[in-house]
Amino acid sequence: MARGVTISRKSVNTIAAGVLGLLMFFPVLWIVILSFKTEGDAIKAPLEILFGTGWTTESYGTVQARSDYFKHFSNSLIISLGSTFLGLLIAVPAAWSMAFVPAKRTKDVLMWMLSTKMLPPVGVLVPIYLIFRDLGILDTRSGLVIVLMLINLPIIIWMLYTYFREIPGEILEAARMDGATLREEVVHVLIPMAIPGMASTVLLNIILAWNEAFWTLNLTAAKAAPLTAFIASYSSPEGLFYAKLSAASVMAIAPILMMGWFSQKQLVRGLTFGAVK
């Protein structure tokens, strides 16, 4: 940076951006605060809540006791991890072969895979629902693992493909010339170079699967309902529920929010399919 930046200009920038950042973040901050209040306090005026009321963790206990929160939490965990790793298992070989042994049609195949992602979920809601009903996998975790794996598979393949393509093929050839067997080539050269890209892919897809709220709402009832569906049950509440809703929401978004902070850069690449890097 050749341009000098004055302290005052930097301060103005910091304040302006800080205020905007805080405004965007405020709803999250607010439910963290409300989650530590009693139900009676949580509906008071904002200033009174901040300065005139005590703090308590009772809502967290209530949420678990009343609705078996951890069952839904583990459903979310199983569904998002399961669909991501199952997807990885299928996507790694595919992305691998397209990146390292490109054929004439590789580009067409990639574009076609992407086009499946453009299919609006509601367009296939009826048949998927009926197929699930007939197979008896409505409201099961394995059913959701399959669906979420399928809807995220194009993103996983695309992300892996763009990462793999950045690994220079010459390195592999050099290893081969030095007499490395295929096994050695994969274990000692390819995998170490591919791990960062694979880790980002996994991270982004866990986030997407965790927050997916069309299929998880429509294909589950009680048994397999992940957090998205559990939180939705607060749309028809009885009595005061702000503190409970806040506590449940905080627990539902906290892990994924932290993962999101670590994967900002990958998010851009993954969600734009490499169109913006």
């Binding site: 805080l22 927050n211 809703l245 806040s246």
Partner: peptide, 22 residues
């Protein structure tokens, strides 16, 4: 930047209900 991009990671049912009620 972390604060500004956080809403993207909030699940849709949470943001809907939090805005509606709180």
């Amino acid at each position: 930047r972390i604060m500004a991009i956080s809403p993207f990671f909030v699940m849709p049912t949470v943001s809907g209900l939090v805005w509606k009620n709180m």
